[in-house]
Simulated scan of single mutants.
Amino acid sequence: MDPDRIVVLAGGVGGAKFVRGLRALGRRTPDRSPDVTVVANTGDDLWLAGLRVTPDLDSLMYALAGVNDEQRGWGRAGESERVSAELTAYGVGWPWFTLGDLDLGTHIARSAMLREGLPLSAVVERLSARWPLGVRLLPATDDEVETHVVTAEGELHFEEWWVRTRAALPALAFRQQGVETATAAPGVREAILAADVVLVAPSNPVVSIGTVLGIPGVREALAATSAPVVGLSPVIGGAVVRGMADACLTAIGVETDAAAIARHYGARADGGLLDGWLVDETDAAAVEALAGSGIRTAAVPLWMTDDDATADMAAAALRLAAR
């Protein structure tokens, strides 16, 4: 299948690795390279020390620009942290949420543009123009929709639960504050409706993909599009590939299992999300387990070890879409 228009729903680090692989796949046949639009989760966003921080959008932008820190998996390469140390000395911000100096430059620029009245989607376009990303990057919404976690010790912003507690506090529920009155950012619904294929990156199903799907208008566009919707499992052999998505899945009563996540998303024919689902070869039993579910499933290698391996994953997703 050689689609002209691909939309990817994505979170941060895992989503960024997948989109880099998809871009690498397009470069194998430059005369047939598709237009790719990435719709990114904004539920991790927050105001901190007077600055608007957008972790997933930045992870995507930095990774596609080739300036991300490959060792940590987030932030900029070659960072220093002098400004964060000064903020801590003044008692400002979260001392355990360290932002690098180059990264802070991005947050300052973004916050200045937002205060000038630009919507987040326009800010993302201006920031992304600095580098040839090879894709169009869109926030799921221009509105402030922040994910909070309900715990026995109170309600925390998702980043506090994720970074400070390392998800050690059991999550009782997740709340996307402001989601009911939010609208999809300009271009999001249009891109989905015009797509030839929609891919769901192997990102956190609860707080990344789940937040994108919670924005009013997004699910409706996915239901209406003529494009097949194919997802890739973020779980291999009963374990999450990266991060602590298992803690999020447990909180909503979903097993950390490739087939269970597909059932959580649901078949599009039954009002859910998916037409197709890729699992790792380790989870090949899921192909039979999901037979008759309305979700066409295939097993292929899903370890994103490098851009070439991830490009092969993306190619498998497109082949499944063509079926």
Rank of each mutant, 00 (worst) to 15 (best):
V163H: 05
R175W: 14
P170S: 00
S111L: 04
G117P: 10
L138V: 06
G178T: 10
L172W: 12
T165W: 09
G134E: 02
R126P: 11
R164F: 02
L127W: 00
T151L: 03
A122D: 15
T147P: 03
F174K: 01
W131F: 03
H157N: 04
R166M: 07
L102E: 14
G105S: 04
E155Q: 11
R115C: 13
D103A: 02
V179K: 11
L114H: 07
L114R: 10
A173M: 06
A167E: 06
L127M: 13
A122N: 11
D142R: 12
A129Q: 01
T147I: 09
D143G: 15
E116S: 15
H157Y: 06
W162G: 09
M113K: 13
R136T: 06
D143S: 15
T165F: 04
A140T: 15
P132T: 01
T106L: 10
L104H: 01
R136D: 08
R136V: 08
L127T: 08
E153L: 12
A112K: 12
L118R: 14
S111M: 06
L114T: 09
R115W: 07
L102K: 13
V123C: 03
H157F: 04
L169D: 00
E116T: 13
A152S: 10
G134K: 02
P139A: 12
E125D: 15
G105C: 04
V179S: 11
R166N: 03
G105L: 01
R136P: 05
E125T: 14
S121K: 05
L156C: 00
L156S: 06
L120Y: 01
